[in-house]
Every structure is written in C-alpha cells, then in structure tokens.
Design a protein around this nucleic acid. Structure first.
Lengths: 206, 206
DNA sequence: ACCTGAACACCGTTCAAGT
DNA sequence: ACCTGAACACCGTTCAAGT
C-alpha cells in the first residue's frame, strides 16, 4: 500500500472519470449518462468531477475526443496496410469507419449525434474531428495523382466518399429504416455502397 | 365563448402538446426538452400530458412520426414534378431530403439521432420511417427500367444513394468536421455529391 | 373523462467547509 | 490541491383527489 492507496486521489481521477463515462455511455446511451452516476462509479462524491471538468458537457467532450483519436488511429493503420493502392485504401478506410461506429455505437452517437456538435463548436473537439476526416482527403488525392480516381477538383470526390461512408455508418448504428433487416454484414453492405460509388449509378453509354 | 372556451379542454390537448414540443425541440434540441416545460407552454399542469402520452418518449415519438410524414410528402411532391425523368427525381429527392433536414435540424436530430431509434423500435415510428424511405427505392427502380441507371439488383444502387443523401444531411445539421466552413449552399453540396455518385469516382478506362 | 397538487426519487451545479 | 455534504432549482413519473 502506497501512501496514496486510492488511485483516484493521486492525479488520475480525470482519466478514471473519462473511462467510467465511456463505459456507462456504451451501456445506456449518451443521453442517459448522469454526472452523479459517473461519480458513483468511481466511488467519489458527486461534486468531485467539478475539480476536473467545468460541467457535464466537458466530460462528454473528453469522451468524444478520445473517440475521434481512436478513429484516426484505426484509419492510419488501414491506410498503411496498402501504401500503394488508393482504391484498396478507399474501401478499407470506409469499412473501418463503419466498423468503428458499430463497435462503439453509443460513443459514435455522441461523436456525430449533435448532442455536442450543435451549440458551441469547442475547438478541441472540432480539431479532433477534422484530424480524423483529413485521412479521407489524403486517400482521394493520392488516388487522383496515381490516375485511379477521376482528375480535377478533389472536393466533389471527397464529399461523395465521406457522405456515403458516414451515412451508412449512421444508418447502421441507428437501425434506420430497418436497415438491419438486410441480412448482410456491415462490411458487405459497405462493399455494396463502395462498389456503386466507385462505378457510378448511371448506366454506361453502351 | 363556447361552453368549452379553452381549446385544451375539448380534445386537442394532444395535438397542442405535439405542436409545442416540436417548437421547443427546434429551439433547444431534443435532449433539452422537458415534459414539464411542454406542459407549461400549453398552460396545463405537469401531470396532464400523461392523459395523452404514456411517457416523455411517447411524445417525442409523436413529433418524430410527424417529421417522417412531412418528409414523405415533400418527396412525393418532388417526384411528381418530373414524372418521366428518374435522373432528375434522384437529384431533386436528395436535395429535398437535405433541405428538410436543415430546415428542421433539431427535429431531424430526433428522427435520425438514436434517441428514439435505439431501444424499442416502436412499430409506428419504424413504419413512418420506412414509408419515407420507400420513395427512394421507387426512384431507382423506375430509373433502371428506363435504362437510366445500371441494371441488375437495385439493392446496391439504393444503398449508395440513400447513404450518400443521408450522410450529407447528417453532416450538415451537425456541422460535422467543419463542413459548414465550405461556402457552398446545401443544394450545391448535394449536387456535387450527386454528380460524383452518378458518374462514379473511378477514372474512365480511357 | 380529464385535469390538478402533492409526493418521491432522481438530476446538474454551487459553495462553504474539511484534510 | 483535492474532495465532501448540504443546499437549490430543476426533472420524470405516480397517485389520490377534485370537477
């Protein structure tokens, strides 16, 4: 037993609060999280969190920021796996985007769901989100340089890619419109979307 | 003055509650809505709503269902405007999807945001959502019959179309990743996405 | 049938006080 | 510096009681 036997009293209460909040959110959704509940979970008084977070929202932001960092790392890993194949990167990055959202569905809800994004943009959160997104831009740009994707302004390509992967992820975690009644795995559904996005919806002009 | 001067006492308290809830949600977001606040807004005791809604969630569902009906009607209008041009229908329907979401951003958050979708699917809500979605399927199918869209199973085309429009709408209402810093109007951004979706991201094989 | 008022067990947040 | 306990103004929900 150290002089500071209780880990929550020598500096990592902050980390413990974020960890507990992340777990509780995954159990009951972001809107069911109570600051008092988090305090109870780490066995601390209900006022203690205020030493480390200005308010409940600040704690939620810390959870979301961690989520964006995790997403960015997952994207980096996947991109590094096929350094010279932008088409493969595009498909794999979208798949991991969808997979990350499903594996941490409630946290993804918090990250993308408007609970935080709406009011004050909170620079730190905004930065973490944009950093994750910047990977998608890189994939498209490299693919254009290699002649894999259509040349010209990358903006439209990036937007379409981004909207499609984000949209599928959101639909899957919300079970929107009964999408889960389709029997395919998330990965198979993303392949379906990605293939159509790559090839286009229009019939070839024969 | 009728014998029942107060409109909330002769049968339309239910409708008044839904209307007030819709307004309050648009002002402060779905998570800030309090049932007591709604009751105050229609000048009724805080227990009165329980005569008409089992709980707070049931009231939120009623608001969301109304939203899906509005969306369905808007899609019908747009589809009817170009009865013989599926390509035009596809573009216009996506634009109206995005526009409806932006014009009722907080209600859209409620409709798509997982606050309701997650736990119990609630058949009535699920049906309203699927009815709105079925319009997209119709557009793609008609386009395939006319040879405008690529033939074969419509599933992949529908999923890509749906994910892209839904994804762009969600990104816009959440200002995700600073998408609003782009200067284009929502309609222009959708056109960018739609054009790339129609033509495909891949470079033509020369 | 429809609404009210009190009551209960929760919240988020603040603040004096303890170590 | 870091945490506690009481306090305040809110919630959602229930229930006896009123008309």
């Amino acid at each position: 037993m150290q002089p500071t036997a209780n880990p929550y009293h020598h500096g990592d209460l902050k980390a413990a609060l974020v960890a507990a909040a992340t777990r509780l959110i995954e159990e009951g959704g972001p809107s069911s999280l109570s600051l008092r509940g988090v305090a109870r979970a780490v066995k601390v008084s209900h006022a203690a969190p205020y030493r480390h977070f200005r308010n409940k929202r600040a704690l939620l932001e810390a959870v979301a920021i961690e989520g964006f960092r995790d997403l960015g790392k997952a994207l980096d890993t996947v991109i590094a796996q096929s350094p010279d194949d932008p088409r493969r990167q595009m498909i794999d990055a979208g798949a991991i985007y969808v997979r990350e959202a499903i594996d941490n569905a409630q946290r993804a809800q918090l990250m993308f769901g408007g609970l935080l994004q709406r009011d004050d943009p909170s620079p730190a959160l905004q930065d973490a989100a944009e950093a994750a997104f910047s990977r998608c831009i890189g994939i498209i740009r490299r693919g254009q340089r290699q002649g894999v994707f259509r040349p010209g302004s990358s903006k439209g390509l990036v937007m379409a890619y981004w909207a499609a992967s984000h949209g599928l992820a959101m639909l899957l975690i919300n079970d929107g419109f009964g999408i889960r009644s389709l029997e395919e795995s998330p990965e198979a559904l993303w392949r379906l979307v990605a293939d159509n996005l790559l090839a286009g919806l229009l019939a070839p002009p024969t």
